[in-house]
Design a protein around this nucleic acid. Sequence first.
DNA 1: GGTCGGCAGACTGTATACCAATGTTCCCCC
DNA 2: GGGGGAACATTGGTATACAGTCTGCCGACC
Lengths: 232, 232
Amino acid sequence: MDKKSVAAPDFAAPLGTTNRSLPEQICDHIRELIIDGTLEAGTWLRERDLAQRLNVSRIPVREALPVLEAEGFVRMVPRRGAMVTTLTLREAENLYDIRESLEVLAARLAARQARHSPPVALLECLERGRAAAEAGDRHGVEAANAAFHGEILKLSDNPLLQSIMKPIKGRVRWLFHLLPSRDPHSQLLKHQELCDAIASGNPDLAAAVAYAQIVRTRESSLAVLRTLLPES
Amino acid sequence: MDKKSVAAPDFAAPLGTTNRSLPEQICDHIRELIIDGTLEAGTWLRERDLAQRLNVSRIPVREALPVLEAEGFVRMVPRRGAMVTTLTLREAENLYDIRESLEVLAARLAARQARHSPPVALLECLERGRAAAEAGDRHGVEAANAAFHGEILKLSDNPLLQSIMKPIKGRVRWLFHLLPSRDPHSQLLKHQELCDAIASGNPDLAAAVAYAQIVRTRESSLAVLRTLLPES
DNA sequence: GGTCGGCAGACTGTATACCAATGTTCCCCC
DNA sequence: GGGGGAACATTGGTATACAGTCTGCCGACC
């Protein structure tokens, strides 16, 4: 197997002077590099190397890598380092199994909450997505979609669910980056339908809609992924 | 608020010379101390203090604490340290929401797998629990119960689900430590029923049984917890 | 008497240097 | 060409140092 070293280019350390902790920034940075494909599967991440490139010491890097391992982006091998994992078809299926459970739960809880306070933020995301779609702004559409799902989660008002969904969302994004980008219009229709179901305040309806949508996405995505990913 | 410092006694560092990594051992050790109540809610965990007591340096402690935060056992405050969290009624409800989704999923997947290979390990756990119950070995019963749920998870054959359930299981144990211990006999009956449903190879049946059982447990547990835990 | 400001202490966040254990590579020798 | 072993690379873990910041307290001033 061809063991690549960590990619040389585009590693400039943008770690701005925010108030977020260094390990967190490092973690986010590496995660983005993996999701957008800059760091390919099989790449070894050496902590001293990363520390040097990012202009930090080993300690924050050492704290960032286990997080990425917990999220499934890298696999840590004792005394070897962290390797960017290969997404397999099996993992994609496992991921959809989880989503079918948890996103349905999120929709159900969101609908329950929506009875008390109407989901204005949800409608806002929808509108933002529509505007971006009409402007042909693919990036804006994706951002609005992510915000939409984030709002459902926030609406569900279950911090534990939110913390569990965080790694899931990262992996879903990773998967979707491998797929040809989907039609923004049908995406919007789906979100509109889900939004309506949640806004109706009927948990069972919202759950059913969310479930049906994920199953549909699952089938079409896996059909494509079967041609792209290794079995396991 | 009365800010307790880290408890002085029973902190002897038993960290054996296993091959498991130091942060992992530290994490497990502190988690047990929290679950069994040695470390009360509100206790501040100071990393230098912990490091000294456990006879390790600060670095492995620093890597263990974020894990415990992700699992919900402590809350880290920047530049203050980690505080043992207070379990609230809200969190208990959130936890049951998640379990209703994920344990049902686990049962469903396990039943699907059981069609190909009969769940002998599951039956074994059941038998072990029965033996422990007849011997009046409460600790053995609990261990067998934990093993039973672990086997379902293993049977479900979804590594992502297993990794997600890990923190959940810890919190469930934490919760159950607050409750008066349940009747081993009715526990066994429930597990027998769930085991049969899984062994039947019918995913929908297994899911329905698991769901019904969790809902039942939820109601009785929360009734007790309402008298024990703060609202939020 | 109450409130504001500053001082001291405590603790984390991060950096640096170091050693030990272990896995890898590659060269030399047979 | 293949096996053995030495040199190297890399992590796991420790010790130490220093800066930033938060807390709590004490005193001064209104």
